[in-house]
Structures are given as structure tokens and as C-alpha cells.
Amino acid sequence: MAKTILAIDDSTSIRQMVAFTLKGAGYEVVEAVDGEDGLNKAKAKPFNLVLTDQNMPKMDGITLIKSLRAMPQYKNTPILVLTTEAGDTMKSQGKAAGATGWLVKPFDPQKLMDVVKKVIG
């Protein structure tokens, strides 16, 4: 059975690219347009991996991760932050919120696949 990934980004083009790449690799991908939407979709069903943008309207990535970690079913789910800033502030914030790792934008589809494969196989 295909593994499911929740991809959250407010940019349609990035979201489509991510979804297209991962679907092409045989994952099931559900898209969400911002943190709030992502949280609702995450509540509706469990995922094997959550990929989230950091900077989004309504709810940002860090807040989303904190909210997810507070839910028992997402306690151990890998969560990756897609971010344009790879500074230390972001890293410590991400880590404190409970993210599993980060991936710096811009990234190409190959790198995304490599990372996802490493994380959930």
C-alpha cells in the first residue's frame, strides 16, 4: 500500500510540483493550502509523512508542527519543513517545535525524492 504524504504549501506551483514528484514516485499525496487547512486534513486521517512550508497565511509551519506534535497520532510521524531560510534561528525553532528535519528551497524534484525516501522509504 502506498505511503501517504501531506504536502502543505500556500504556493500552488510548489505544491503541484511536490505532489507531482511524489505521486510519480508512488506515494499518495494530499495537498493543503495553509497551516490551518493542513491541520484539518491531518486530523481527518493519518499520514506517513508531513511536508510543510514555513511561511504561510493563517497558520505558519512552526505553529502547525507544534499543533501536530500535541496530537497523539502525530507524536512520531516524520515532519519536514520546506524553508527558504536555513539560518540557525529557523533550525532551532524547527527543532524546538518538533520537526524531524528541514529541506531548503529551492530544491529540485530529485532532492525532494531522495530526502523523502530516506525518511519513509
Binding site: A99, W102, K111, V119, G121
Partner: peptide
């Protein structure tokens, strides 16, 4: 361009993935 927080939640699974054969489905996935 990417990294993982070693002791962060979610790493458990990665360890499992690392240990398991790539094709094997994730046991921990609820």
C-alpha cells in the same frame, strides 16, 4: 540543503526505515 534533527520525534521511524528493507511497509505508520 536539508537536515534532520537527530533526537526529534519522527526519527524513530527513520531508524526503522533505515533498518527495514526499502519495500517493506512501515509498521509504525498508524
Amino acid at each position: 540543503g536539508f537536515g534532520l534533527f537527530d533526537d526529534a520525534p519522527g526519527m524513530e521511524q527513520i531508524k526503522q526505515v533505515a533498518a527495514a528493507a526499502p519495500s517493506k511497509p512501515l509498521a509504525a505508520a498508524p
